[in-house]
Design a protein around this nucleic acid. Structure first.
Lengths: 129, 129
DNA sequence: ACACTTGTACTATACATATAGTACATTATG
DNA sequence: CATAATGTACTATATGTATAGTACAAGTGT
């Protein structure tokens, strides 16, 4: 389970910080398929925010098919591999990359800069194997 | 010179659409170092928005050292070549790439998927030249 | 059936953002 | 020096966003 934390100074809204931490948790392997997340209430109390703030984060992740909620039971990490249809997945990748390059671009980086950096990351990753 | 256009349905604010079109114009080679952009007034009239909306776009690009403004004269594309990535900038790139690959991971994409998509984007961009 | 736990919906409010209106400051040019 | 061109600053307003308060609905387990 993740140790959720909110930083009021970060500038990023609370609900987005929650979303990011869950996504990072999945990417880092700390959250696995089927695992239950804290309930909206318990996490809200824990983070000292309103339960709707947590619910909003969960809701957005549910729309993205990253979480599955069951009323009365809880919220769970869904099986990411079989969730998104391939065609939709391709569009999602395009969307992510567009947003990605737009942000990088605003910092003065070219697409090439990004590709080079990612390739560096990729070889780093292989070194761990 | 770019043929500026605004799409009210796009969801993106006008000033950001202007920014993006200038950035893409530079990336596509349509705008070159030293070239003068339309004045805030003329572009505002052309796009049927307030001059402050254009000014805001120019201002943001000036802060990013992409444009240089001279009161009484106009706004120009600055010399982008001398913007060598500093140490700080490199770290920023790394940071951005880390965050995005983490997000892409959570959707089930690999770094390779991202690189492939970005290379596709890059060649699309070159086709405009 | 009942109590309890879970997520959801509706409302209000404070705050930020985008755009516009208007007046001002600075520079160029004749 | 005067005028016109240019970007800038200040203000107002409408709209969207984030968060919270509270009540509701749906499922669980005894």
């Amino acid at each position: 389970m993740i140790d959720f934390k909110l930083d009021p100074k970060s500038g990023a809204p609370f609900y987005r910080q929650i979303i990011d931490q869950i996504k990072f948790g999945i990417a880092a392997g700390k959250l696995k398929t089927g695992e239950q997340l804290p309930t909206v209430r318990s996490l809200a109390v824990d983070l000292k925010v309103n339960l709707n703030t947590v619910a909003k984060a969960y809701k957005e992740l549910e729309i993205q098919n990253i979480l599955a909620t069951q009323q009365g039971t809880g919220t769970f990490i869904s099986d990411l591999k079989i969730q998104i249809p391939t065609e939709e997945k391709k569009n999602k990748l395009k969307e992510i990359c567009n947003e990605f390059s737009a942000i990088a671009f605003s910092y003065g980086f070219s697409i090439e800069d990004i590709i080079n950096q990612l390739q560096k990351q990729k070889s780093d990753e292989n070194n761990y194997k």
